[in-house]
Design a protein around this nucleic acid. Structure first.
Lengths: 119, 119
DNA sequence: CCGTATCCGAATAGATACTG
DNA sequence: CAGTATCTATTCGGATACGG
């Protein structure tokens, strides 16, 4: 049960936030959360599939981000008791609300990347 | 000249990024950049005014964020040679493109804050 | 008024090894 | 397969003092 493991106990408390923008950035900030949300936009992915989508991530950082996002109800975690174990991740309704936003970021990012050497 | 000071030289190189989402989060991630963009949405603010808008920020962090955002062409910096000095900050066209995005974040954040104790 | 500089602790991130 | 644990390196962020 992730909510009781020692591993989980880090960062259970949010820092104080001063406004809604601050709050939102605390929830989807960090190095990988945006990319995780984006990877899950079309449905369900297993842990290992996510790991391959998010190039460069370690198990430690991926697990940590996933636990925080589960706690914050952005994603849900579903264990399938096959052998070996399968674990599926997908967006919650709240998480799905963020997809248009991530998409805006992506479009803006592509635009900026294309203009990097011609400003 | 900020582009030549020792202070500026930190973080001149971006880390490697793997996709546009990653790129975008590197540019507006961090603790204060979202709030700075939001504060400048309606026009120009001076350094001290910004500082009062972004409650809790220190001069170090504000200056650092402003320099990075200037380097990334999200904001522009205008020095007015009065005495004492005035320095005005405003959004560039590229920075203005991010406002709808920040607004989405803010709306989502307010929605989430309201549902924190009734999930 | 608008920053710079320095010190230092906290938080974040990576590498590596190991387990049910 | 899906993590956990540990150790270390790097980065971030706050406090404080000072300067043009």
């Amino acid at each position: 049960m992730p909510f009781h493991s020692k591993f989980y106990q880090k960062k259970v408390q949010h820092k104080r936030f001063y406004c809604a923008v601050d709050f939102a950035f605390q929830r989807i900030g960090g190095k990988y959360k945006g990319r995780i949300l984006w990877a899950l936009r079309d449905g369900t992915l297993r842990y290992g599939e996510l790991r391959r989508h998010i190039e460069g991530v370690t198990t430690k950082m991926l697990t940590q981000a996933l636990k925080e996002m589960e706690r914050d109800r952005l994603i849900s975690r579903n264990v399938i008791a096959t052998k070996p174990l399968h674990v599926e991740y997908s967006l919650t309704p709240s998480g799905k609300l963020l997809i248009p936003f991530i998409d805006l970021m992506r479009v803006w990012g592509e635009h900026e990347i294309n203009n990097l050497h011609s400003p």
